[in-house]
């Protein structure tokens, strides 16, 4: 079956005063219907820009290029702004990191939910309202009908993120991209929101791309994990395999940073990856992680390395794996 979303050699370049910033450098992604893909990596590694590039919501100065970029069999590279706007909210939806600022303070929750359906479907106000109430109920908001008249500032962060999720579901999209949807929320709320997202995805058989830097989340929800570093994919594997046998030193480092209940002893030091993600400006060559890597060798600076298949579903970009 053809994948729901397919990207090959996806690139995002942003001109800066210091030179061209290669924020996303040749990423391959494939997502099947009903599948959950987690994009993992530190801040600044290009996860969010990848998501915005897929939605064609990049800042105006950013340039997107790809060898292939298909959604539901349709070539998105040829789609203009008008065609993309028809798709957004209708067949592909996005949930953002900041529920506190992602809703318009001047309009009621109901208005903002209803306008999605009114924009994409031939629906009446009453039908849109009915759908909004149904979905607010679905995302676990009590007294859904009375919430429609409330303004965002009257809701807590957790409730606002539930509203954002309901908004993304208004037209029943095939793909949801969630960019760190729980980062700004309390820990107890985080779990609820994730659980909700996952169960809705199963119910509606949507493709889900979840961007996060929290590997605890990944372990619970992902089918497949793609680890990004400095705008590149460094490792990609089914979730169980990635956690059991990570091959890239960066992935291994990330996994050592999280405590495992029952295995990590009190007082034991957690892993730390020294240094910071480099800013990919100008011409880049070799492995970008080599300056922070404990296994670095002279040939790490050589051009490449390419993503190597160590197993059918498991790709690694590292000289150690070749």
């Amino acid at each position: 079956m053809a994948p729901l979303l397919l990207a090959e050699d996806l690139r995002v370049d942003i001109p800066t005063p210091l030179g061209m910033l290669h924020a996303v450098r040749g990423i391959d992604l494939a997502l099947a219907q009903g599948e959950t893909l987690c994009l993992v990596g530190e801040s600044g590694c290009g996860k969010s820009l990848t998501a915005l590039a897929l939605m064609a919501l990049l800042p105006t100065n950013a340039r997107r290029a790809a060898r292939r970029l298909e959604f539901g069999g349709r070539d998105l590279r040829a789609a203009g702004e008008r065609a993309m706007a028809d798709l957004r909210g209708e067949r592909m939806a996005m949930i953002f990191q900041e529920p506190m600022t992602s809703l318009n303070p001047a309009y009621t929750v109901g208005d903002q939910l209803e306008e999605v359906l009114l924009r994409h479907r031939k629906a009446s106000r009453a039908q849109a309202r009915e759908r909004a109430v149904l979905l607010l109920d679905k995302v676990g908001i009590t007294a859904a009908a009375s919430r429609l008249a409330q303004y965002p500032h009257q809701l807590s962060g957790g409730l606002r993120q539930r509203v954002m999720i309901a908004m993304a579901l208004m037209c029943g999209p095939q793909l949801i991209i969630a960019d760190e949807p729980t980062t700004a929320l309390d820990v107890t709320i985080q779990a609820q929101i994730l659980h909700l997202l996952k169960s809705l995805q199963r119910e509606f058989r949507m493709g889900l791309i979840l961007i996060t830097h929290d590997l605890g989340i990944v372990a619970r929800v992902a089918d497949r994990v793609t680890v990004m570093y400095a705008g590149e994919i460094v490792e990609s594997a089914p979730v169980a395999e990635l956690f059991a046998a990570p091959r890239h030193p960066y992935t291994q480092g990330l996994l050592r940073c999280i405590p495992v209940p029952g295995r990590t002893r009190p007082e034991e030091k957690l892993g730390v990856i020294p240094g910071l993600v480099p800013t990919p400006i100008g011409e880049l060559s070799g492995c970008q992680f080599r300056n922070r890597c404990e296994h670095a060798r002279p040939d790490c600076a050589a051009p490449g390395p390419s993503l190597v298949r160590v197993r059918p579903q498991h790709g690694v970009r590292c000289v150690l794996a070749q």
Partner: peptide, 22 residues
């Protein structure tokens, strides 16, 4: 440049609706 304008665009609203309504 605010987040809710990005949300409005992510909903597929037309540029005029984004500009004048939101």
């Amino acid at each position: 440049g605010s987040d809710y304008i990005r949300t409005a665009r992510a909903k597929g609203l037309r540029p005029m609706a984004v500009l004048f309504k939101h």
